[in-house]
Simulated scan of single mutants.
Amino acid sequence: MKSAFIILLAALPFAAAAQTTQAELLRRGELTGTRPSARSQARQTAPRPANTASDPVQQHLLQTDVNLAQASADQLPSLYERFIATTRDERRQWTYPQWDAAGQVLARLNQRYEQVRTTLPLEERLRVRSFQGEFHTLRGARQVKDKLD
C-alpha cells in the first residue's frame, strides 16, 4: 500500500505536465459544449476547407466514409462511438503522430458537433461529452505511461 502511494506521488509531476488547459483545448477545437467566445465565432465565419471524407485516417477511425461537414445531428453520437471504439482497440500500438492524427479527426467531429449540438437530446450530448473526455483520458494516460517508462 505504501509503495503504491509512493509511485502515485512520483507520477504527480508527469500527470501535471500531461494536463491540458481548457483554453488550449478550445484553441485546438478539441473541447466543445461550452458557449463559443467572440473570437471563436469570428473563426467560424472565416472560410474553412471542406471536411471531405477522403481522409483515410478519418475513414479508418470512424469505420465509415462520411463527410463530417454534412453529417446530421443524429449521426454524430454513433460516429463518436465508432471513433472511441477504434481508439480503445488500437491505442496501445499508436505512436505520437497517430495520436495527433486521431486528435485532428476528433477536432473535425467536434466542429460539426458544435454546429448541431442544440438539436440533440440531452442524453446524446452527455454521451458525446463522455466520448470526448475518454479520448483525452486515454491520450493523457499514454503520455504519463511513456514518461514513467
Rank of each mutant, 00 (worst) to 15 (best):
V57N: 03
L62R: 02
A69T: 10
L138A: 10
M1G: 10
S72P: 01
S40N: 10
R43W: 09
Q98S: 10
P56H: 03
E124Q: 13
T34G: 12
R43Y: 12
V116Q: 03
E90P: 04
T86Y: 15
R142M: 10
A16K: 09
L61V: 09
F5Y: 13
I7Y: 13
P49Q: 10
A107Y: 00
Q115R: 08
Q132A: 15
T87V: 08
A73I: 02
Q104V: 13
A42I: 09
S37G: 02
L12N: 06
T119W: 08
V144W: 07
T118N: 14
R88C: 02
R48S: 13
V128N: 04
A11R: 04
L31Y: 05
Q58H: 02
A16Q: 07
E134N: 08
Q19M: 05
F131E: 13
L61Y: 00
Y113H: 01
Q19I: 01
P49D: 14
Q58E: 07
L138Y: 08
L9E: 06
F135W: 02
T52D: 11
R82I: 05
R125W: 07
P97G: 09
P56F: 07
V57I: 15
T45W: 15
S72M: 12
L8W: 11
R48M: 15
S54I: 09
H136M: 14
A4F: 14
Q132Y: 00
K147P: 07
F14D: 06
L68N: 02
R91E: 09
P121V: 08
P49L: 13
D100F: 15
H60A: 05
L8R: 14
D146E: 12
K2V: 13
Q104R: 09
I6L: 10
A38M: 13
G103F: 03
N51E: 13
N110S: 03
K2S: 14
A15Q: 03
F14R: 04
V66Y: 00
T118D: 12
L31K: 09
M1Q: 09
Q115C: 03
E124C: 08
T32K: 06
R127V: 07
Y96D: 12
R108P: 05
L120C: 02
R139T: 04
T95A: 12
R125S: 04
Y80W: 02
P77A: 01
E81Q: 11
Q75I: 03
E81V: 05
L8F: 13
V144I: 12
I7C: 13
A42F: 15
L26S: 04
L12F: 10
A18E: 04
E123P: 01
D89H: 11
G33I: 06
S78L: 11
Q111P: 00
L25E: 04
L109D: 01
E90T: 15
L120A: 03
T119G: 04
N67C: 11
P49G: 15
K145C: 11
R108E: 12
R35G: 07
D55L: 00
R127A: 12
F5R: 14
A71S: 11
T20E: 05
T87N: 08
W94F: 13
E123M: 11
S130F: 04
